[in-house]
């Protein structure tokens, strides 16, 4: 698929990539349930990552030639900003790489016992938010501010859903809300789930690693949500046009980066190895 200039083709491309990602995520889930195949999970995660980096984050734009050689022009500055943003993401990626190193070192081929259905649901929610973000950015690139605002609002709601899903339900942050939902998702009887309130963060490596990794990711989701609100608000004020919307692109690329991190964290925390209950 080539990257198209046509609006409906660009939106269609987003749909196709989202379907690919959904299929791969389900494949991942069933592979983990059916066999114990770590290499396959790694391969699937890398394929998903490549799709996101190319079709959602548009990494090829880094290779764009300058149409305007004046260093003060908006076009030249956008390419400069894009390079800066990518360098920042590479730098930030090292934090998450370090967390993965820590997880491998401390947990090896074990993982915490977690509610699998909930994990799949929040993953799909985050993936969907990425899809809508891409849709919004494509609409802004073709000058459709209304469409952009609509899609960004959906992205924001889905992102908030992911954040609450992790912090409130997965962490059992608010038991009164978490318990009925977890029951609805079919929590097995006697599952020893990690709860910070019972001190699981400080009793063993399972809780420490799990809360550190999801916590660091949740912090990035939170900053991404703030960023999304800022660009949505600016779009409402009419700051962006089809030609000048660097802020929108930056917010979108950052949001996809958060998704990219979760593509690796999801198998690392939910799928790889054998589950060990909380102590």
């Amino acid at each position: 698929m080539s990257h198209s200039q046509n609006k409906s083709a660009a939106l269609m491309q987003g749909v196709i990539i989202a379907i690919y990602l959904a299929i791969l995520t389900l494949l991942e889930y069933f592979v983990a349930v059916a066999f114990d195949a770590v290499p396959l999970l790694i391969v699937v995660a890398i394929i998903k990552a490549v799709l996101v980096v190319y079709y959602f984050m548009h990494i090829y734009k880094l290779n764009q030639k300058d149409s305007d050689t004046n260093h003060e022009s908006y076009a030249y500055k956008t390419i400069t900003n894009r390079l800066g943003l990518w360098l920042f993401l590479i730098s930030d990626g090292f934090v998450f790489a370090g967390l993965l190193v820590m997880r491998i070192n401390l947990l090896g081929l074990t993982r915490p016992e977690l509610n699998q259905t909930l994990g799949l649901v929040v993953t799909v929610v985050l993936l969907l938010s990425s899809f809508f973000m891409n849709r919004g950015e494509m609409q802004m690139a073709h000058g459709d501010v209304k469409g952009f605002m609509r899609n960004t609002a959906i992205t924001f709601i889905l992102g908030l859903g992911f954040l609450l899903g992790v912090v409130m339900i997965e962490w059992r942050g608010v038991p009164a809300i978490a318990e009925p939902i977890l029951h609805f998702f079919g929590e097995p009887e006697g599952m020893k789930a990690l709860t910070p309130s019972s001190g699981d963060a400080s009793t063993g490596p399972l809780g420490a690693v799990f809360f550190m990794m999801t916590g660091m990711h949740a912090f990035h989701v939170l900053t991404g949500l703030i960023f999304l609100f800022v660009v949505w608000n600016n779009a409402r004020k009419g700051v962006y046009t089809a030609e000048k919307h660097w802020g929108v692109e930056a917010a979108a690329v950052y949001w996809h980066f958060i998704d990219l991190v979760w593509i690796f964290f999801y198998p690392a925390l939910y799928l790889i190895g054998t589950a060990v209950g909380a102590p």
Binding site: V95, G98, L106, A201, G204, L206, G207, F211
Partner: peptide, 26 residues
Amino acid sequence: QFIGLAFQLVMFQRLFGMGFFDPAKG
């Protein structure tokens, strides 16, 4: 980023008792 992460993990170990580098906690 790696030294930042390493120091952050020790800070969390001190503040919340998360035993990243404590052999007694794995």
